[in-house]
Design a protein around this nucleic acid. Structure first.
Lengths: 351, 351
DNA sequence: TGTTAGCACTCACAAGGGTAGAGTGCTAAT
DNA sequence: ATTAGCACTCTACCCTTGTGAGTGCTAACA
């Protein structure tokens, strides 16, 4: 059966109305509200066809229609029109990013908050992974007789600290020398190139401070390990309670439970990396393969830095979500974040 | 009316039962379950007295009794017996603290998680404030031509980083010299002693790098400001949904809403500082003065470091919470945290 | 042939009524 | 002082009924 223009119009009306009200949409509602010059009876016939095509369905006999996952898919792929964010929203998103330019983790946290504030959906976001990025600076600073501070900076100006405990005090000048040696060896290399060869080299060069190498390596390693762990920030989970589809406490609890499991989130966010065209990945309802989330849609986008994907943002809401808004918010925010990351790493390329 | 031993026993039975079941407790239930050698009729009479005293009440005529806030108060002040944590719980709590010894924010985050995991209640925790603590190390490190990394360490080995953007590159040796000058001036002082006099002194000493002072001061200031902001970590909010008293989505939403407001949390946590005896502050029901939380009890404890209160932990649950468990978990955790903080600051006192 | 009016039918939801069960308060007996 | 017994109350649950929204079908219409 061909999908006539009129059918499309009706489908669109059903989806719009359902997104707005969360109530099954009846033929009369459409006839009255959208005034498309045909009677409710005709709409009824068309709706019956749409149902045969699997685009809408009735939650129970003789009730209004609800878009099916397939219906939303069609809407998202073909019908949805881009929504432009208005100036104030744009500015809000931009200010959030630029106010936290110096601290990646705050930046991520605030970004998540901002997005969930704007969209009223739940937002998850993964921090850029510094693994495989190039080390720029490794410094040792004296803290006190028993501790030395290790400061690691990557090419992109991500800073990590680690306190190393030492048995005997190391004079400041020596620390300076040691820092120099370490820097010579590691600078310009990625943290995962730390092999036994490098370690031997380090031990040799450090001479009398050779004993210091193990704890140093351990510290670097621990720092790297903690950086390798994908950090995930989440915000706006409680918004879920506002949607009538989750007014059943049990359902809400199930979703919260699922969102609590980090692996699930990482998997979800990971999906967006499959997308080639720097585009978004939209998973509608059952498409996300997680039983508990079958009534949710998830839209993810990943942000890059120097051509490599660094992390992703995901927005989770009921299948009845405002796809066009979410898409534009995500696009805007990815652009903002990429700009910031770029400006961070550009600092050291300009003269 | 005097509070006979028998009345106390009955009150205790009611509270225990209600904490466990969340159902109003009837006289027959007590007669059967707690077998105290008297009939339900006698218990009924006693319960009637307890009600007159305001310790229990009926949610509706001819239903079982529920402890009133006053009843819980009596229980908490006089009747409650200390519960000892078992070995595994103790170890769990300890391991959480010692595994995150080097990163205060992870430590707080994980502590909150651990407590809410153990108790099933919501946990909030405020990070130690570094304001007013003594600066130990201030260093500038070269990052690249346009940025300098500011590293600030306090007496207690809390580390903060800040990237300063500079218009012209500053040679490494100069940075070293500048670091030395700054250190001379600020080392041993608290961050809030940074007055105009100190700034002038700095400007004079820095000579040709005088122009650098404003951005430096700004960076130090920003770092201090961000440290002054009381960081609050929260965990286990979704546990709230598990309690039958909040099975009404609206109620749950109200509480979430309230918990979202940071000021509220800070105020709540602040209360514990009023307590003199290093003890806990228990606020039962309406005692916390927050309308939305009238059905919640909040137990807070604050942890000290070198005699000063640094932060607090709070546990939020229904008034029908397991007070004795919460009290012992809190006591244990405060001790653990204080130990860690002590070991951090001890490092520089031992030779 | 597509469109519409009309009608019978279905279903969810709310309101009303009846019942069972848990619990109380009171009284009289022990 | 304690207890057994009884009348009473209130909630929770179930069942019934009525209403409104919405459908599908048929027959009439342009």
């Amino acid at each position: 059966m061909p999908l006539s223009d009129r059918k499309i119009k009706i489908l669109q009306a059903i989806i719009n109305d359902y997104i707005a009200t969360a109530e099954p949409v009846g033929s009369r509602t459409i006839a009255k509200k959208y005034d498309m010059g045909i009677s409710s009876a005709t709409i009824r016939n068309e709706m019956s066809d749409l149902e045969d095509m699997g685009l809408i369905y009735q939650p129970h006999a003789s009730s209004g229609r609800i878009p099916s996952d397939l219906g939303y898919r069609l809407y998202v792929d073909k019908l949805m029109q881009k929504k432009e964010l208005d100036e104030s929203e744009n500015q809000f998103l931009q200010s959030v990013v630029f106010q936290n330019i110096n601290h990646i983790d705050y930046l991520m946290e605030e970004t998540a908050k901002a997005i969930s504030f704007l969209t009223k959906y739940t937002t998850i976001i993964s921090e850029p992974v510094i693994n495989r990025t190039i080390l720029k600076q490794i410094r040792l600073l004296p803290l006190d007789d028993n501790s030395v501070l290790l400061v690691i900076a990557t090419e992109e100006n991500f800073i990590k600290n680690h306190i190393i405990h030492v048995s005997a005090p190391i004079p400041e000048e020596d620390l300076f020398v040691i820092s120099g040696i370490i820097n010579d060896i590691l600078q310009g290399h990625s943290v995962d190139e730390l092999d036994s060869e490098t370690i031997t080299e380090l031990e040799e060069k450090l001479g009398i401070y050779k004993d210091f190498v193990p704890s140093l390596i351990h510290a670097v390693d621990a720092t790297v390990k903690s950086a390798e762990k994908v950090q995930v920030h989440m915000s706006g989970t409680k918004n879920i309670l506002a949607f009538p589809e989750f007014s059943d406490v049990q359902k809400a609890k199930d979703i919260f439970q699922t969102l609590e499991e980090k692996d699930v989130l990482v998997t979800l966010l990971g999906k967006s990396e499959e997308e080639e065209d720097g585009g978004l990945k939209i998973m509608i309802g059952t498409e996300n393969n997680i039983q508990e989330m079958k009534d949710c849609s998830i839209i993810t986008a990943s942000y890059k830095m120097s051509e490599t994907t660094r992390g992703s943002i995901g927005i989770i809401g009921p299948t009845r979500m405002d796809y066009s808004q979410v898409v534009s918010v995500l696009n805007t925010m990815v652009k903002n974040i990429e700009n910031v990351l770029k400006s961070l790493s550009d600092n050291n390329k300009n003269p």
